Simulated assay, not measured.
Amino acid sequence: MRKLGRSTGHRKMMLKNLVTSLLKHGRIITTETRAKEVRRIAEKMITLAKRHDLASRRMVLAEVLDETTVKNLFDKVAPKYQEKNGGYIRIVKIGPRRGDSSPMVVMELV
């Protein structure tokens, strides 16, 4: 688990926000290190959603902040990946950020 230069609570909430945005919009632009952490969590959420039971819905709700996004995840996103075992998220490098040269990436659902 990377610390990302933040306190525990701040880091957890930032990652939850990024996961929620990724599942809501289908793609986000972020730094490479954040993307690698978000991928771990988001792939677990999609795998849980594929089980499609109440316990998995509650576990996803603990990590994803928006209930409509969870409903969308269970109804539309998870069925697309039903036959696939992992590898739901693509990370594409887009070069350094202008201000501080941090490596930026586009994360998207495959």
Score class of each variant (00 low, 15 high):
residue 1 M to C: 07
residue 2 R to Q: 07
residue 2 R to N: 02
residue 2 R to D: 02
residue 3 K to Y: 05
residue 4 L to I: 08
residue 4 L to Y: 00
residue 5 G to D: 01
residue 5 G to Q: 01
residue 6 R to M: 05
residue 6 R to V: 06
residue 8 T to Y: 04
residue 9 G to V: 00
residue 9 G to L: 03
residue 9 G to H: 03
residue 9 G to A: 02
residue 10 H to R: 09
residue 10 H to L: 00
residue 11 R to C: 01
residue 12 K to L: 09
residue 12 K to T: 02
residue 13 M to R: 03
residue 13 M to S: 07
residue 13 M to L: 12
residue 14 M to Q: 06
residue 14 M to D: 06
residue 15 L to V: 14
residue 16 K to T: 00
residue 17 N to V: 06
residue 18 L to Q: 00
residue 21 S to C: 09
residue 23 L to F: 01
residue 23 L to P: 02
residue 23 L to M: 12
residue 24 K to V: 07
residue 25 H to R: 15
residue 26 G to P: 05
residue 28 I to V: 13
residue 28 I to G: 01
residue 29 I to R: 15
residue 30 T to A: 03
residue 30 T to I: 10
residue 31 T to K: 13
residue 31 T to Q: 12
residue 31 T to I: 08
residue 32 E to K: 15
residue 35 A to Y: 05
residue 35 A to S: 10
residue 37 E to S: 02
residue 38 V to A: 06
residue 38 V to E: 03
residue 39 R to K: 15
residue 41 I to P: 01
residue 42 A to C: 08
residue 44 K to C: 10
residue 46 I to R: 01
residue 46 I to M: 09
residue 49 A to H: 10
residue 51 R to Y: 12
residue 52 H to P: 00
residue 53 D to E: 13
residue 54 L to F: 12
residue 56 S to W: 00
residue 58 R to P: 11
residue 58 R to D: 12
residue 58 R to T: 11
residue 61 L to H: 12
residue 61 L to I: 06
residue 61 L to M: 15
residue 64 V to F: 07
residue 64 V to S: 07
residue 66 D to L: 02
residue 67 E to K: 08
residue 67 E to A: 03
residue 68 T to D: 12
residue 70 V to F: 02
residue 70 V to E: 01
residue 70 V to G: 04
residue 70 V to K: 04
residue 72 N to P: 02
residue 73 L to M: 10
residue 73 L to A: 08
residue 74 F to A: 07
residue 75 D to L: 14
residue 75 D to T: 13
residue 75 D to R: 14
residue 78 A to V: 05
residue 79 P to W: 00
residue 82 Q to P: 00
residue 83 E to K: 09
residue 84 K to I: 09
residue 84 K to P: 04
residue 85 N to D: 11
residue 86 G to I: 01
residue 86 G to C: 05
residue 86 G to M: 04
residue 86 G to T: 05
residue 89 I to E: 02
residue 91 I to N: 01
residue 91 I to Y: 06
residue 91 I to V: 10
residue 92 V to K: 15
residue 92 V to Y: 09
residue 92 V to R: 13
residue 92 V to H: 09
residue 94 I to L: 02
residue 94 I to C: 06
residue 95 G to S: 06
residue 97 R to Y: 01
residue 97 R to W: 10
residue 98 R to N: 15
residue 99 G to L: 15
residue 99 G to P: 13
residue 99 G to Y: 13
residue 101 S to C: 13
residue 103 P to K: 14
residue 104 M to T: 12
residue 105 V to A: 08
residue 105 V to Q: 07
residue 107 M to I: 06
residue 108 E to M: 08
residue 109 L to K: 11
residue 109 L to A: 06
residue 110 V to D: 10
residue 110 V to P: 10
